[in-house]
Design a protein around this nucleic acid. Sequence first.
DNA 1: GTCTATATTGGGATAGAC
DNA 2: GTCTATCCCAATATAGAC
Lengths: 207, 207
Amino acid sequence: MVNLNKHPENPEEAILKAASEIFIEKGFDGARMQEIADKAGLNKALLHYYYRSKDKLFRAVFNKVFQRLMDGLVSVFEENMPVFDTIRIFFKEHQEVLITYRHLPVFILNELQRDPNIVVDMFNTSRLKKVRNTFFHRIEKEKQEGIIRQSIQPMELFINILSLSVFPYAAKPLITSFIGIDESAFFDMMEARKDGLADFVIQSIKA
Amino acid sequence: MVNLNKHPENPEEAILKAASEIFIEKGFDGARMQEIADKAGLNKALLHYYYRSKDKLFRAVFNKVFQRLMDGLVSVFEENMPVFDTIRIFFKEHQEVLITYRHLPVFILNELQRDPNIVVDMFNTSRLKKVRNTFFHRIEKEKQEGIIRQSIQPMELFINILSLSVFPYAAKPLITSFIGIDESAFFDMMEARKDGLADFVIQSIKA
DNA sequence: GTCTATATTGGGATAGAC
DNA sequence: GTCTATCCCAATATAGAC
């Protein structure tokens, strides 16, 4: 589960922590206020006292975990360094993020499909602007320098990298049952895959 | 929405069709038997008459749409032809499948995360066996022939191709809000991306 | 602020007429 | 087989004592 607050001292944080775990595991519709209260060691009435409604509590949770995941996945692209380095570091670090936040990708994708209005607009656009100014800019520069192939589109490369990184974790139950391996074997496989992924991408884009 | 039965003549099929649309859109927990009945033009009692319980109705739906999506995505890999051709044809056809079944990937990934026990085991293993005997076998052969790089792992390549193909559609709400485009612009972007994706992969694996 | 008790609606499931 | 009416539990939300 996601550890949002290591040691919540006040009820408000304890509720948010418990709610995060339950919502991420069961989704908005599957989550029960009673279960959240139990996990927080409090009673239902307090959830409403602090967050008014299930819906408002959910939004608080969603915004928080969404930003967490984005921080974990996107921050590398905001550093200004050679593109190949960015890619290698990203794939080296992404596994840790995705293991820590196991269920987050599917949770976010699903809730966004259920209700596209929950997106945190401000965050998205400002975040992408930063990626544009660093990673995308760097790609164009290295295309000029003859390091990267001319035909490479920054946005598509970005989407490709995220796809290769995130999808296998989202599809973990499918993959494990397909191949007939258990969870730990799956994570071993992902671990072994890291370097290969960077090679896979770099091989594609180098001039 | 997914059109499972064009013109359902009998109630049983009408229910399954309506249930598919509702379950895929709202998930198991978010779906309402009443809404399914309304959409099918029948009453709740009939749903229970034909399918006993919400859970059983859901399983009937899930098994069906799961197999549909797999057919659409995996069948190309079961044809015996040069690997590069397989890849090009797959990316050429995948868009159509994923537009037709828009919400299916997230639906399936989410329900599998919610309850990993719903996997249809028999189907998976037999299906993968076929892919192994054709696509995987072909990769090994072309490695011998010096067409494909020695370091390429068939299973990982397979996962990579599916990731590149499916993830952007699963993350559609995120991508559109990120870039600030609408649905139709998104599909245009995906359409334009097809050829580039095949190039992206082939560039990576060719010797 | 924190609890217990309760109001109230929603929704899966069934009984029973036709 | 198909309907209406109803049962009954579950779940969000609130009232009110402390």
